[in-house]
């Protein structure tokens, strides 16, 4: 059987960027959720979107994954302008909620999302479960898994098709510290293997695990750089203080 949606070839015109946003704006009526963002994200790196609730992190991810249309501007992922349904086969998206079927087993969930992405190889489904250390739980009904296990299953479902680009919307919310360390271990391994990862978070202590951070406030990127760079630039040794410094500056500038 032929796959009815051939994956479009990656256009190299994005200057080697895995993700490119140009003048991205999203308005919901009078509310401006994303207010003119322009950036390039290089492949194989972990990017952290950091900002308070309502700063536009989730909307930005939804724009980049093509789940919602931009009011203005463009978003390209792997050289393909979003939204593009076929390109979704190369993108992994872990939503804020678990988004797994509680009546299905862990294995069935991974298999189903695999099939949705066009993965037919059972070994690849097993591999995703192994990666999140759920291989021994494959036959367990997802609804009976612990909260942390469900979160891991959710991650497995997002990377079952080995996407070159992975969006993780607050992946560690409600996750215990031990599992959080494990998660970041997974993310690092994937990035080392060439995956571009975009993680949103409002937890500052996770930020240093990212290669680069984008501080977000009121729909704008207010600062960008590694944790070290941002701290130095802000003249503080605390990332939280750095964020407040940048946020304060933009508030004054505005």
């Amino acid at each position: 059987m032929m796959n009815s949606d051939p994956i479009p070839p990656a256009a190299p015109d994005a200057g080697g960027a895995a993700i490119r946003a140009v003048g991205l704006v999203k308005r919901f009526g009078p509310v401006i959720a994303v207010d003119g963002m322009t950036f390039d994200l290089a492949p194989g790196r972990i990017y952290g979107l950091l900002g308070p609730n309502g700063s536009g992190k989730t909307t930005l991810i939804r724009l980049l994954t093509g789940m919602t249309r931009a009011t203005e501007g463009t978003a390209h992922v792997l050289g393909v302008r979003m939204p593009d349904r076929a390109n979704l086969a190369r993108i992994g998206y872990m939503t804020q909620g678990d988004g797994v079927y509680p009546a299905l087993t862990a294995g069935e969930n991974a298999q189903f999302f695999g099939a949705a992405y066009g993965v037919e190889d059972a070994a690849q489904v097993d591999e995703a479960l192994r990666l999140v250390e759920l291989a021994d739980r494959a036959k367990t009904i997802a609804g009976t898994l612990s909260g942390g296990q469900r979160r891991r299953l959710s991650l497995a479902c997002a990377l079952v098709h080995k996407p070159p680009v992975l969006f993780l919307d607050e992946p560690t919310v409600g996750v215990d510290p031990l599992l959080r360390v494990q998660f970041w271990g997974h993310f690092r391994r994937l990035a080392d293997a060439g995956t571009t990862i975009v993680v949103s978070s409002h937890v500052m202590d996770e930020a240093d695990r990212c290669d680069e951070l984008l501080f977000m406030r009121a729909g704008k990127v207010i600062a960008r750089g590694s944790g070290e760079q941002l701290r130095t630039e802000a003249g503080t040794d605390d990332l939280e203080a750095a964020f407040l410094r940048f946020a304060g500056e933009t508030a004054v500038a505005a």
Binding site: M67, L88, A89, T95, G97, P102, A116, Y117
Partner: peptide, 11 residues
């Protein structure tokens, strides 16, 4: 349950 949104993020 968020599964529809997730499904819509697939092809």
């Amino acid at each position: 349950g968020g599964t529809l949104e997730r499904l819509m993020a697939t092809p």
